[in-house]
């Protein structure tokens, strides 16, 4: 796996590494037992300070996603991939059918996005407080 650091995104580099690792865990690009690139490898390919990479890995470690093994590297402990969300899963099929109906009903892309966002807001309020707080802390940390 190779990280892509966008220097103009306004998102701190260590946050980008955390997000891209989580994304790779969700998509199954990274699986339990895989080794993350070393700080030296990331430094070489992305020209990023090794401490930035190590900071990202410490955060992933706190989340229980990876584990450093002294002398060997940092390894993936668990995946974030969910079979229910796979491309051929029934949930995706239902969503696809719903989006098709919304489009036929004359909704624009942004209308659909707004509708989905508002339902997400309603359904996930209780469970996202902790995550939102975590993000707020991240924001403070990243400067």
């Amino acid at each position: 796996m190779e990280f892509r650091i966008d220097r103009r995104s306004g998102i701190a580099a260590y946050q980008q590494i955390v997000q891209q690792t989580r994304q790779a865990l969700r998509l199954g690009v990274l699986l339990p037992g895989d080794r993350l690139p070393t700080a030296k490898e990331v430094a070489e390919t992305c020209a990023v300070n090794p401490n930035t990479t190590l900071k990202a890995y410490r955060e992933l470690e706190r989340e229980g996603l990876v584990e450093p093994r002294p002398g060997l590297g940092t390894f993936v402990l668990r995946s974030l991939a969910r079979p229910q969300a796979a491309a051929d899963g029934p949930l995706r099929g239902e969503l696809d059918a719903w989006v098709t109906r919304a489009r036929e009903a004359g909704l624009e892309r942004e209308d659909v996005a707004a509708l989905v966002a508002s339902v997400l807001e309603e359904r996930f309020t209780g469970t996202t407080v902790a995550a939102a707080q975590g993000e707020a802390l991240d924001m403070r940390g990243q400067g």
Binding site: T38, A39, L54, K55, G71
Partner: peptide
């Protein structure tokens, strides 16, 4: 060096 795999991050 602190880039050794698994080394803690503090120089």
């Amino acid at each position: 060096g602190y880039g050794d795999p698994g080394e803690p991050g503090e120089p």
